[in-house]
Nucleic acid binder design. Structure first.
Length: 916
RNA sequence: GGGCGAAUAGUUCAGUUGGCUAGAGCGCCUGCUUUACACGCAGGAAGUCGCAGGUUCGAGUCCUGCUUCGCCCA
């Protein structure tokens, strides 16, 4: 086996975790709970890339919190998605030649439930494949028994409070789905249409007025023509009558500020039953509301001979008829925004009907305050403005839908006295007249009426359950910003209304997943890959890693195969590094430690001791750290001397990484947290540390202690990566001989404070710089890789020489040189390739290999660059305004840099001289 | 029409409190089958930080205006 293959491993661990009961909150933990409620996916939908991103982020957070020792709860659930599901089921029935209205409500619902049961298994299985550590024992569905109770309770309470009312109102109506929808479900799209100028003759025969309209077919519903009351040229016509063409009706000219003298012709036809603005005008002037269409958008008996035509057919026919009568003044092309139903794409018809509404203004007040005062934090913060803007202009919410799949509104009408009763359960008789003849409201509630209760309905509300007491308010909500109004804002309002507390402490908005061309992934475009196929090919860890690591907070992400390769390649890298280290462990036959010694549940590295302790007794401190991670002792006894330069450097860097990762997790910068570990592991642990210790790993006498450091490095890396890549890290953890129990509920190490081994870290960085310079030199000069040769390092003082002495074998190893030697001062070796790394001059004396002209040109170029920079720096430092105003450390830094570069320039000049 | 955001290497993006000789992934170029890994390693090229002003000793970062693109709302 040469590459990591996730197949089988992922399923194995998911089952093991579930069986071990690790997904629920640990009841023994006393810390503050960390709670996330999963935004419920549509139960009849399938998982798409957006879910993968959101779920990966949530699982990363919840796994991190769990490993930090907090009782972590992530509640799963699905949404009944009223309209979407009703559409799917209707379509299925249509394919069988059935019509839902013919089969009736009960039969339809029965079928919808069967469908729901089928698809529910699919979507939850997909979520499992992703590795989500959800507490399945608490799974909820928006239409299950418990949630139904919550919905009914909420409705009745609001009704009793007088916040729910029923009114005849112009609503957004979908003529395709035959239901009202809320304002938020209307999607405006730019459409190329026409502006028709129609002549309406004055009834007294004294001429005509011209109105401009984009919808001539609604003229049959006109009740007036409006002009602005102050319009100097037209106001004299107010009070006159016009003859409505193609009909025998006469309508008045009225004065209303809705008509803008600057726009169009200055005259506006008023159609109260078919236009929201006209509806308001109609109310102001008590105009007749003439409905000229059926709910399906077919012209009705009001339109005379045009009856029976569809909306757009009628438009054509009306225009033709008016043209024939000489009443079409002109036609202009006109681009305008037209409302479409976001679910089915059909053009919305403003339609006059009796609907249920919820008054929003009072509900909004505490919700606005909570966000404004930081009680609820939004990440990224810029969404606060968007939220405020919507909340401060909030409009009443149309909550009734003319559908069957949903929560039937808990209102009964008395057949005898028309009393209206809202109740938790069907009342036996009418409380007003005692009649037993009661009929329940036919309409169901908007889907979001159940979702907005989600943070607390999932925890048992309206009952005061232990879960509700312990886990509400929840910690963080993770969602895409496109549902900030539909859902996020409404959840905040609901929680304050029913619980008198916030629903969550923070909201983390993530971006939208787009394809390589920047298009939103959608079913209709067919550009959304099936996540399961991706997981099959690349592994869930690779997908999660790529998504989390490459997604800056709240930014949209462009998704492609290349993106996935980053994650897949990284998985392989972790696997390969583990193989290298453990291969040596096996050869060495080291003891695994006592399985009974369990490591502590939490680990704060700083509590083991300050940086000074690490400097003074590193072996003892290391042993303490080992016990904190594995329990027990390292595989081999080790003394302070066993911890070499590279060991101390990597331990210091490991702690820096722990600290940075924790800080970024706290700030919810998940990408930075993951990326930091990625960089550490790949470019420091593998590229430098493992390369540096290879000879020691092969040396039977030396490998015991160094294996301890390497295995600890692996273990800590697994821990830091586990929240993002749970499967591979759990698998490889189980391979480490000293590991015990599940990585999933082991400790996530924390570290704050001064990182130990500052001198060793600086020394190793110097090694890296020297090695880098030698490698560069070899490459630039085209030295063959097989040619090893000597490296001469010249330093100005004996002190620096002795400091470098110990690192010479390491430098030779990493730079692939035969040997490296250090000299103090003296003549430049020549001919030689030369470079400068800090105070160290590097010479590669390679007779016959170095092209003198090439080398001189190279040095000249480097020198020119440095001199250019120094000129600028000197100018800056001689500017008194700079030295006077800038903080001391900034000035000092410039001085240091200048000195450093001056020295380097001097050395480069000498080298050039030496070359002749 | 109103609001929000973005503009930095070929490309996707970092750059947090103004101190930067502006970084990373992918791509590109050169070299390497080095006993974990070619899903790899080493080295390299590549930028007028959208434009124009301003504040400041100092601006990718703050302010004003403009341009282009994206999103949301009406």
């Amino acid at each position: 086996m040469s590459q990591y293959a996730p197949g089988g491993i992922e399923e194995k661990w998911y089952a093991a975790w579930e069986e071990a009961g690790l997904f629920g909150p640990d009841p023994d933990l006393e810390d503050e709970p960390f709670v996330i409620i999963l935004p419920p996916p549509n139960v009849t939908g399938i998982l798409h890339m957006g879910h993968c991103l959101g779920n990966s982020i949530q699982d990363t957070l919840i796994r991190w919190a769990r490993m930090r020792g907090r009782p972590a709860l992530w509640v799963p659930g699905t949404d009944h998605a009223s309209i979407a599901t009703e559409q799917v089921v209707s379509r299925q029935m249509a394919a069988e030649g059935l019509d839902k209205r013919e089969v009736g409500r009960d039969a339809f619902l029965e079928r919808a439930w069967v469908w729901k049961e089928q698809t529910h298994g699919r979507i939850t299985q997909q979520i499992r494949r992703l590795g989500c550590s959800l507490d399945w024992s608490r799974e909820a569905f928006t239409m299950d028994e418990a949630r139904n109770r919550a919905v009914t309770e909420a409705f009745v309470r609001l009704k009793e409070k007088g916040l729910i009312y029923r009114d005849v109102y112009l609503v957004n109506w979908c003529p395709h789905d035959l239901t009202a929808i809320s304002d938020d479900e209307v999607e405006y799209r730019e459409v190329e249409g026409h502006l028709w100028h129609l002549k309406y003759p004055l009834a007294d025969g004294s001429g005509h007025v011209t109105v401009a309209t984009t919808r001539p077919e609604t003229m049959f519903g006109d009740s007036a023509v409006a002009v602005h009351p102050n319009d100097p040229e037209r106001k004299h016509l107010i009070g006159k009558m016009v003859k409505l063409p193609l009909t025998d009706r006469e309508i008045p000219i009225i004065g209303d500020h809705h008509a803008d003298p600057e726009k169009g012709t200055g005259f506006v036809k008023i159609t109260p039953a078919h236009d929201p603005n006209d509806f308001e005008v109609g109310r102001r002037h008590d105009l007749e509301q003439v409905i000229c269409m059926t709910p399906a958008g077919i012209m009705n008996e009001q339109v005379g001979s045009f009856a029976g035509l569809g909306r757009s057919e009628c438009r054509k026919a009306v225009v033709e008829a008016l043209e024939k009568d000489g009443l079409l003044d002109k036609t202009e092309k006109h681009v305008h925004q037209v409302g479409h139903h976001d679910r089915c794409g059909h053009i919305i018809e403003p339609y006059l009907s009796r609907q249920w509404f919820l008054k929003m203004e009072d509900l909004a007040t505490p919700a606005v305050k909570a966000v404004a005062e930081g009680e609820i934090k939004l990440f990224p913060e810029r969404w606060v403005g968007v939220y405020d803007n919507w909340m401060n202009n909030i409009r009443d919410w149309c909550i009734s839908r003319q559908l069957w799949w949903g929560h039937r509104i808990p209102v009964w009408y008395c057949d005898d006295c028309s009393e209206e009763i809202a109740a938790l359960a069907e009342p036996g008789k009418c409380p007003a007249c005692g009649s037993g003849g009661l009929t329940q409201e036919e309409d169901v509630l908007d889907t979001w009426f159940s979702s907005w209760l989600w943070t607390f309905s999932t925890l048992g509300w309206p009952d005061e359950t232990p879960d509700l007491k312990k886990f509400h308010p929840t910690t963080v909500l993770v969602t895409a910003p496109d549902i900030i109004f539909f859902w996020v804002a409404r959840m905040i309002m609901a929680s304050y209304e029913f619980k008198n507390e916030k629903p969550f402490a923070e909201v983390l908005f993530h971006g939208i997943v787009r394809d390589e061309e920047g298009r939103k992934m959608s079913k209709s475009l067919g550009n959304s890959p099936d996540p399961i196929l991706i997981i099959d090919e690349y592994g869930s860890d690779a997908l999660r890693c790529s998504l989390v690591m490459l997604t800056p907070t709240g930014q949209d992400i462009f998704f492609s195969e290349t993106t996935l390769e980053v994650g897949r390649n990284f998985c392989n890298k972790i696997f390969q590094a583990t193989k290298l280290v453990l291969g040596t462990w096996d050869e060495a036959g080291l003891p695994a430690g006592n399985p009974a010694d369990m490591p502590p549940r939490t680990l704060e590295i700083a509590t083991l001791g300050p940086a000074a302790d690490w400097a003074e007794r590193p072996a003892e401190m290391f042993t303490g750290l080992w016990a904190g991670i594995f329990g027990g002792n390292p595989p081999a006894d080790l003394s302070d001397e066993d911890l070499r330069l590279e060991d101390r450097w990597i331990l210091g860097r490991l702690m820096d990484t722990v600290s940075g990762c924790g800080a970024n997790m706290e700030k919810r910068r998940l990408n930075d947290a993951a990326y930091g570990v990625f960089n550490f592991f790949r470019h420091e642990f593998c590229d430098w540390y493992l390369e540096a210790i290879k000879p020691r790993l092969r040396d039977e006498k030396e490998r015991g202690p160094v294996l301890g450091v390497a295995v600890l490095g692996l273990a800590v890396s697994y821990k830091l990566l586990h929240p993002v890549m749970p499967f591979i890290t759990e698998e490889l953890w189980s391979w480490l001989p000293p590991s015990k129990g599940f990585l999933m509920n082991s400790s996530f190490p924390g570290f704050k404070g001064e990182t130990p081994f500052a001198p060793e870290r600086a020394a190793f960085e110097q090694v890296m710089e020297i090695v880098g310079a030698i490698r560069n030199l070899r490459n630039e000069l085209g030295v063959q890789p097989g040619k090893r040769g000597r490296a001469i390092l010249r330093v100005p003082s004996a002190g620096e020489a002795s400091a470098l002495e110990g690192a010479l074998p390491l430098i030779a190893l990493l730079a692939k040189m035969e040997n490296a030697e250090v000299v103090v001062g003296g003549e430049d070796p020549s001919p030689a390739g030369a470079a400068v790394a800090g105070s160290v001059e590097i010479f590669l004396p390679m007779e016959g290999l170095v092209d003198l002209d090439k080398e001189k040109a190279r040095l000249h170029k480097e020198l020119a660059g440095i001199e250019g920079w120094m000129k600028g720096c000197r100018a800056k430092l001689s500017n008194e305004k700079f030295t006077g105003n800038a903080p001391d450390h900034v000035v000092q830094k410039q001085k240091d840099l200048l000195a450093e570069n001056e020295a380097k320039a001097g050395k480069l000049k000498e080298m050039l001289d030496a070359l002749g």
